[in-house]
Amino acid sequence: MGETPRLVATDIDGTLLRDDRTVSPRTASVLARLTASGTPVVLVTGRPIRWLKLVYEQLAEPLPAICANGAVVYDPDGDEVLRADPLAPELLAEVARRLRAEVPGVTFAVEVTDSRQMRHEAHYPLRWDADHDAIRAVQSPEELLAAPAVKLLARAGEQDPDAFVELVAAALQGLAEATHSSYSGLVEISAAGVTKAAGLAWYCARLGIEARDVVAFGDMPNDVPMLTWAGRAVAVANAHPAVLRIAHEVAAANSEDGVAAYLEKLFDVG
């Protein structure tokens, strides 16, 4: 971890963004200077592609992104999906069957069309872009599971997020990946082997960059695979305990521009 990294990978929400979901001018400036100097910066997020616009509007230029917890690798310059690892319809059906048997009242949504659109069951509680034209309720469970999905979302009322994800992961062991990136009781499900680490590893291999040459920033359990994979793992101070336990270092909180401050010192761009 002594050498200067060749690539910067960072989570967005709770890490790069402040609590009001804005990118500070300091953070935007540091990222712009790094990319201008030739150091690649990639966003690694649970967000769908359709949510990236809110971040891109605050940056000097759009950055490559690994979305949906590693299931989608996105190039904003050409609005191109470079790689996608969706759950096939038959796998979605089996995941849903197992969870309906294990979790009373569970309800689902899916990210489809490489996460450009979302479909949800009628009783699935929408917390954010409910009025977006890319969001639509389906008429039946069969319709929900009919197309490949880069992420399946599961809710079951108010749940302890850590306990709920453990329950879901146990039910899906060997079949799919389960994680969470919020405290709202939402579990995010991807195909087996699809994690932020896997998506980032694929992207770095494309550039000829090894794990040891990557510095990664995160705050929530869905960041743990990426942070474990990267040569230098940095948690922000507001991170979940699971992230703080495995990080090599801890930066200041997201509300204090922790990522920017760390990068200024590491790359001497302050």
Rank of each mutant, 00 (worst) to 15 (best):
G2D: 15
P5V: 13
R6Q: 15
L7N: 07
A9T: 07
T10S: 15
D11Q: 10
I12H: 12
G14P: 11
L16W: 11
L17D: 09
T22C: 13
V23K: 05
V23F: 07
R26W: 03
T27W: 09
S29W: 06
A32P: 00
R33G: 11
T35W: 00
G38D: 10
T39R: 10
P40T: 07
P40Q: 07
P40C: 07
V41C: 08
V41I: 02
V42Q: 05
L43P: 06
L43Q: 06
T45Y: 09
G46D: 04
R47T: 12
I49Y: 12
R50N: 10
K53L: 02
V55N: 04
Y56C: 00
L59S: 03
P64N: 08
I66N: 07
C67G: 11
A68G: 11
N69A: 05
N69F: 00
V73A: 15
D75I: 02
D79Q: 13
E80S: 09
E80R: 14
V81R: 12
V81K: 12
L82I: 13
A84D: 14
A84F: 08
E90H: 14
E90C: 06
A93R: 15
R98S: 03
E102D: 13
P104C: 10
V106Q: 06
V106W: 03
A109K: 02
T113E: 15
D114N: 15
D114S: 15
R127W: 02
W128A: 11
D129Q: 12
A130W: 02
A137Y: 00
V138L: 08
P141I: 09
P141W: 07
P141H: 09
E143Q: 14
E143D: 13
L144V: 04
A146H: 00
A147T: 00
K151G: 03
L152T: 04
L153W: 01
A156Y: 09
E158T: 13
E158P: 01
D160A: 09
D162S: 12
E166R: 15
V168I: 15
A169E: 14
A170S: 14
L172A: 07
H180A: 05
S181I: 07
S181M: 08
Y183A: 13
S184A: 12
S184N: 11
G185I: 10
E188F: 04
I189L: 13
G193W: 05
V194A: 05
A201Y: 02
G208D: 07
E210W: 05
D213H: 14
G218N: 01
D219E: 04
M220G: 01
M220V: 01
P221G: 04
N222T: 02
V224M: 01
T228Q: 09
T228H: 01
T228V: 02
W229A: 11
R232G: 05
N238K: 08
N238I: 06
H240L: 03
V243F: 01
A247S: 10
H248V: 05
H248P: 05
A251V: 04
A253Y: 01
E256G: 02
D257F: 04
D257S: 07
A260T: 11
L263T: 08
L266P: 08
F267V: 07
D268C: 00
